[in-house]
């Protein structure tokens, strides 16, 4: 028996008037995995997640969550699902706790003590009795996580959860997602940050202008990634350029800002740097400009051509 997919969305399309926000995308999330939907601004991530939650109706395609569809199960589709879309919103005139209590009512009640527990998890216990109107952005984001955990979900759907948080907030949010995932929760999160997805996710769908540009595992993505790029500042850039002529495996050019742009596999680049040293060219600075995956992300999303080779149904394979 094939295990139930947490999310099985096939051929989902949504138009807003003349704008095709989501174009026949297929996303399949196996139970227990951490799945990333990655894309630049306007790629259709939020639109897709809204359709998952039934907030907007797809024009065509089907969405099943734990094998239930909106047509058959209505709001029952969301049994076991929680999360938030864009930044979470609450009633500003109610306290954080009162907001959670009200939402718990809509959930059909929660077990005793759970509200306190989730407030503890997101570190809002001290502020729970203040009105949400006075909360900072980060506090609201955390209250959004608390409100989601209140449903004791099996699938957590987060739309750019780190958006707008400060570096410490981002770190905490990622750590929390990882811990939740480790506890067995299926997580579907959207992001525009390749680093974040690489850090947290097992599988990823890259969206570009509403269509799938890549879909597969992070490992598969790595094999497609171009060589990393570095910026080098040396005491003698001219000489370094000349040396590079004889050095295979690295590609070196002179940047208008008078730095050397070097691309190549890590090992080749370090061999080139060693050669510079031997030739008495001193290294003044060395920076990585783009991680390979970031470079790949830009390649995939800058042009509109999807890499068709990777559009095969790898989620299905991953399940076997």
């Amino acid at each position: 028996m094939t295990p139930t997919l947490a999310v099985d969305a096939t051929g989902v399309t949504k138009n807003f008037g003349p704008v095709r926000a989501v174009d026949e995308i297929t996303v399949q999330v196996a139970a227990g995995e951490v799945y990333g939907v990655l894309g630049p601004n306007g790629a259709g991530k939020t639109t897709f997640l809204r359709m998952l939650f039934g907030l907007i109706r797809p024009d065509c395609g089907s969405i099943r969550v734990f094998d239930k569809s909106w047509d058959q199960a209505g709001v029952g589709v969301l049994d076991g699902v929680a999360g938030f879309i864009e930044s979470p919103r609450f009633y500003p005139y109610l306290t954080g706790r009162a907001n959670l209590e009200g939402l718990a009512l809509l959930d059909g009640g929660t077990r005793a003590g759970l509200i306190k527990e989730v407030l503890d998890i997101v570190d809002l216990t001290d502020r729970a009795d203040r009105k949400v109107g006075g909360y900072s952005y980060g506090m609201r984001q955390r209250l959004g996580v608390a409100a989601s955990l209140l449903r004791e979900p099996k699938l957590l759907v987060l739309d750019e959860p780190a958006n707008g948080l400060d570096p410490a907030g981002i770190r905490d949010m990622r750590a929390l997602v990882k811990r939740l995932a480790a506890s067995g929760l299926t997580v579907l999160l959207s992001s525009h940050d390749m680093g974040e997805v690489e850090e947290i996710c097992d599988n990823v769908t890259i969206l570009n202008r509403g269509s799938v540009a890549f879909h597969g595992t992070i490992a598969q993505l790595r094999t497609m990634a171009p060589d990393p790029g570095y910026l080098l500042a040396t005491t003698d850039d001219r000489r370094a350029l000349a040396l590079a002529e004889h050095h295979h495996g690295v590609d070196v050019s002179l940047d208008p800002d008078a730095a050397l742009v070097v691309t190549g596999r890590r090992s080749e680049v370090s061999a080139f740097v060693a050669a510079l040293m031997r030739a008495d060219v001193e290294l003044l600075g060395f920076t990585e400009t783009q991680t390979p995956l970031e470079a790949l992300f830009f390649m995939l999303t800058d042009d509109t051509r999807p890499t068709s080779a990777h559009r095969s149904n790898q989620a299905q394979e991953a399940l076997r």
């Binding site: 295990p3 139970a31 734990f66 094998d67 076991g80 959930d107 570190d123 099996k154 811990r179 067995g184």
Partner: peptide
């Protein structure tokens, strides 16, 4: 944010069949 406690019942968590909840 502090450590995640065991707020999910493992039996419920591990099951992959459709979930029912109170509404």
């Amino acid at each position: 944010m502090t450590a995640v406690q065991t707020h999910m019942d493992p039996a419920v968590r591990e099951s992959t069949v459709a979930v029912e909840r109170r509404r």
